[in-house]
């Protein structure tokens, strides 16, 4: 038993190391991409001896680094949110985009931006978005659980999709009637890491860090879920409370990520799918692994978005959609046969 688990730990460590090095390579590739050709030596210069008046240094330090960080932070949040959701709901198909969290968060952001009931400081936008995500997801949960008393995975996916459609109908209604907000939000709405800049990354960092730490703390309790609900109850885990806590954390992570990079879907579906048998042994290591993979996926998608049709930038969210929807199809096909 101990031998087995230590073998598992060392495998996990290897995977974590592998993932971190992939992340580093991707980050360097990402920073090299851009509309302005900048030689590698200048990049080193920019980091080692930044010159305030050199535009190349500015591009590296204030445009590309923040954009790469936005991808890393946002991707990690999306990946972690997806994994938390999947473990807590015991549902491989659970993902913020599929279950309506993204749609709820974007509805909240569009509402706040258009009608400005209160002028929100940037640092509070992630929380408004999280509130929207939690609201819509709460509705999905209520509809799929009430009456039967338990969360049926497939029903949840259906309700998630139906309510997402509803929220996006409301979003497009608002934007059709308001041309200028549409112009302001059109890129963000389909997922765009360029939007915020360094300030925005800093302003959501506390929320994401809070979410990741909370996720780490919850992981050991959630791990017992994989044994089945009755066993985890017998082991003394408070299934209900842990689950609620996990969902609140998910909403926080997802809302922060949406307010930074827009409603990008499927990262949380693809990240765990990269690692076979991850769901059988959910653990702290697995959680970090998935968060890192989410960051790597979003970085890779953003590299493609920048480079595929350069100089035209594609919306990052569309690329994760093109890559992630087949993963969803594959998961469904495997699940139901």
């Amino acid at each position: 038993m101990t031998a087995m688990s230590s073998a598992g730990h060392s495998r996990e460590r290897h995977a974590l190391l592998l993932m971190l090095s992939v992340l580093a390579v991707l980050a360097i590739l990402h920073i090299q991409q851009g509309a302005r050709p900048i030689p590698a030596t200048v990049m080193l210069d920019a980091v080692l001896s930044p010159d305030r008046d050199a535009f190349d240094h500015f591009v590296i330090l204030s445009l590309r680094l923040p954009r790469a960080s936005a991808c890393i932070v946002g991707g990690a949040a999306f990946g972690a949110a997806g994994f938390l959701l999947q473990v807590a709901m015991r549902n491989r198909l659970a993902e913020p985009h599929v279950l309506g969290l993204n749609a709820g968060a974007s509805l909240a952001v569009v509402l706040v931006t258009t009608y400005q009931p209160v002028v929100l400081p940037d640092i509070l936008m992630p929380f408004a978005a999280s509130l929207g995500a939690a609201g819509l997801f709460g509705l999905v949960l209520a509809l799929s659980a009430l009456g039967s008393g338990r969360f049926d995975p497939v029903r949840m996916v259906f309700f998630g999709i139906a309510l997402s459609a509803l929220a996006s109908a409301l979003v497009s209604a608002i934007l059709i009637l308001n041309e200028d907000t549409l112009e302001q939000l059109r890129f963000w709405l389909v997922g765009d890491a360029a939007g915020g800049g360094a300030a925005a990354v800093w302003s959501i960092l506390p929320a994401v860090a809070l979410g990741l730490v909370a996720g780490c703390l919850l992981m050991p309790q959630l791990a017992t879920f994989s044994l089945g609900e009755s066993i985890s109850v017998a082991l003394g885990a408070s299934v209900h409370r842990t689950r609620i806590a996990a969902l609140v954390v998910t909403a926080l992570l997802c809302g922060s990520a949406v307010s930074l990079v827009g409603p990008i879907g499927f990262v949380g579906l693809m990240a765990p799918a990269l690692w076979p048998r991850l769901h059988q042994r959910p653990s702290l290591g697995a959680f970090l692994l998935v968060a890192g993979s989410g960051a790597a996926i979003l970085l890779a998608a953003d590299i493609l978005a920048l480079g595929l049709l350069a100089p035209t930038e594609l919306p990052t969210g569309a690329l994760t959609g093109l890559a992630g929807a087949p993963v969803f199809i594959w998961l469904v096909a495997r699940r139901l046969t």
């Binding site: 890129f187 879907g265 499927f266 959609g321 087949p326």
Partner: peptide, 12 residues
């Protein structure tokens, strides 16, 4: 979802 992503690229 795949198709709406393609649509988004068109509209971008």
């Amino acid at each position: 979802w795949c198709l709406s992503s393609a649509l988004v690229i068109l509209l971008a």
